[in-house]
Amino acid sequence: MSANGPVLDVRDLRVWYGSTRGAVRAVDGVSIQIRAGEVLGLVGESGCGKSTLGRGVMGLLPDGSAVDGQVLFQDTDLLKVSDRQLRRMRGPDIALIFQEPMTRLNPLMRIEDHFSETITAHEPKLSKAEVRRRSLEALGGMGIPPTRFRNYPHEFSGGMRQRIMIALALVLRPKLVIADEPTTALDVLVEAQILSILADLKRNFDTALLLITHNLGIVAEACDRVAVMYAGRIAEEGDARTVFSQPAHPYTRELLRSVISLNTTGLHYIPGAPPSLIDPPAACKFHPRCPDAMRVCAQLAPVEQRLSAGQRVECWLHGPGDRIPEGGREPLEQERIAVAEEA
């Protein structure tokens, strides 16, 4: 691996879930890259495939799902390695932090046992004293005192449990951390605390971080780059500041308009809901909800474009012009989404 090469290079990843009504295309051709010490924010509405992407990278998809594409972690394709090798990489190479900390610790195991199990699973030769020292160091870094080491999970609050989960993920010094909505279940003060912990991580250990969230405020604060996901595809990706100041995709723009701030006088929202991933709309999947939809948007899938500002975007508004058929730029006559349907 070259020194500046990405830690994680996902190429054209596709994930399907089997369901009784047909295959669900949860992730439909996603490519992203993360470098060491970089924080990539992955945003989008609920049900657009964010979490599936995170799990797909870890190889933690449920039974009955299928994967295609490439997930290169330091030039190793995680989709090709054996289960055994993948298991060895989970923890020391890639760690996952979950959304709801309350149920992620085994209620019958002491915190100590969670740590010793995790550490010895990857470094079986470590002495007990060393295991203990490293565990306490990781916990201490999260502000959990050593006196609580032998407590059970039910004796901690949600915020503390999430910090324990993070300590548990970081005790093996992973090169890539995937945080799947790590603060969604927590209150704002704890949220700020967790975010600063994650920022320290990047600063101190040069860890790459994939931060999955639907909170755009967090992205603005914590992320270097941002990828906006819609219906299983990346709609727009680029430098966080650029994307936020000059959103190129109508979906990003509408998403940003929906953020609530102190100046908000009326709530903005995007009419409709993310489409069914079993039978998504043809061509551009956003066109039924898009205020700027053109005729071409309902006919052809958009092509990825690199903009001068640096971001890549999949939207016909940004061309390429020579691929748009005659009259394709005419506004699309849309049936207005019925109010009843929105409710």
Binding site: M58, R88, G91
Partner: peptide
């Protein structure tokens, strides 16, 4: 199906320990 089972797998605990230590006892 439990959350802590998935979490244990995500930490790279081998399947045997996941089943015996986490699933069966619980």
């Amino acid at each position: 199906k439990g959350d802590y089972i998935e979490a244990a797998r995500a930490r790279g605990i081998d399947e045997k320990s996941v089943v015996y230590r986490h699933a069966f006892k619980n």
